[in-house]
Design a protein around this nucleic acid. Structure first.
Lengths: 252, 252
DNA sequence: CCTGCGGCCTCACGCCGCGTGAGGGTCAAC
DNA sequence: GTTGACCCTCACGCGGCGTGAGGCCGCAGG
């Protein structure tokens, strides 16, 4: 009623070497050895192996596995429950990813290009769609601020330099389009507006078209915000607002 | 509009070293370098990185990833579709595992102990519950035979030795119980019958209680099958059949 | 202008989880 | 007693990075 390495390997679908390795590091030591020194695995060993492989499949390191398996107070049912939870977690994560991929497919089909951040949201923030939905549902004011604060807190000086450089690029592009008489609701101005939105989304918070329009209003209404534009050319803030609105309408 | 390693690392949630590594092996070479030799990642690079991480997450080796990404005829949408399929596959697998864990929980709660094979079925045969359901639904005759043939085809000589040794143990246990007058519907005989069933399940096919009862009948009806028992003791095959039936009733 | 500091660079060694021999013993079958 | 399938113990190697060491770039502040 005990099994040789080869048999266990075949049953469990692993290599003999793997079993040797687990023996070496003390993760799974066969209960017995034959007179000739052959490893003999007993039922409890098989049981343990199953658990080892399970946790391994879910990405645990062998050391971590040793810890959870040797943790006393190990009621088998507890293990099963834990495994079930872990699986549900992983499934949830993958479903998120699938949803994100689907959104990406739709976006591609519509010809919308994503910002880097949006692309990597596939991998989730552990705090999945829930937060995103909330942020969409609510009027995003304070939430955007919160998000911006969280993100920028971790920026380095180099990041800030990049932010400024990018912002300057956008500003210049607006100024150029304005100076050359490109219409605010033309493709050129709208493209710059889109770059502007991407810039904000990239570095600060998810800037929806709604929020973007709000910002546009702010530039003409509040001199503290509009100064950057008015300082470059008179009437530029109004031009930007119009371009932003046109761009939002284009993507609606 | 290009990013430094550190920025990309932070955006994508990987280490700088990882990006260096991908550059080293040619998996992701930044589109540009600054005058000072600094890596500068462009938008397409970011795009590629996203895909790299995606496939990595799903367990592909970096070399495999290079192959799928450099495969020409690479329409982005095709990638997304492929990713979606892969995700659905993984989700399916995990759901199977979750289901198996749940069954294991029920089994444990009922006090039934599983055979090694049953335990490792968590990891699936790629051909999930479908086959198992069919096998249950149909009258298992030919199906059991098919399963047995598939399994035994891969047995080694050592396995066969183990099979014989185990069968001999069971036979001896039956003979001993019989000789010592243990009743065929008593715990002792029924336990041996259960071991017999486990033996078959372990090495040949899923032996349900129904099938097991059928086998019991076979032992008394067909001398080719009963000979093994009758050769040890006259009337043993009948004893075995009764024990098997009693054991089946016990588990019903 | 120089100094500091954060970020970048290139080696280069190390760790984990095994794969893959090499060299040799064991044991049932013929 | 020979064959062949299986087992053993070293021991080296590989993939995918982590983790310094030692040094260059470049902006800010004094």
């Amino acid at each position: 009623m005990s099994y040789s390495v080869g048999q266990v390997a075949r049953i469990a679908g692993v290599s003999v070497r793997t079993l040797h390795h687990y023996d070496e590091i003390g993760l799974l030591t066969p209960g017995e050895r034959s007179a000739a020194g052959y490893r003999r695995y007993t039922e409890p060993d098989i049981d343990r192996l199953q658990r080892v492989l399970f946790y391994r499949e879910l990405g645990f390191s062998l050391e971590e596995i040793a810890v959870v398996l040797d943790d006393p107070g190990v009621d088998p049912l507890t293990h099963l429950r834990r495994q079930h939870e872990l699986l549900r977690g992983r499934i949830g994560r993958l479903e998120q990813m699938a949803a994100a991929v689907q959104r990406a497919m739709e976006a591609t089909r519509m010809g919308v290009s994503l910002t880097p951040e949006e692309r990597f949201e596939v991998f989730g923030d552990f705090d999945p769609g829930k937060h995103a939905e909330e942020a969409e549902e609510r009027w995003g004011g304070t939430d955007a601020y919160e998000q911006s604060r969280r993100r920028t807190a971790r920026y380095t000086k180099d990041d800030w330099r990049a932010v400024k450089a990018e912002a300057a690029e956008v500003l210049e592009a607006f100024a150029a389009a304005f100076a050359e008489g490109a219409p605010a609701d033309g493709d050129r101005a709208m493209d710059v507006a889109e770059r502007h939105r991407a810039h904000i989304t990239r570095w600060f918070y998810d800037c929806t078209y709604e929020i973007h329009k709000g910002l546009g209003e702010l530039y003409v209404a509040d001199p503290r915000f509009g100064a950057g534009y008015e300082g470059v050319a008179e009437g530029l803030s109004g031009y930007v607002r119009d371009a932003v609105h046109a761009n939002a309408a284009r993507h609606a």
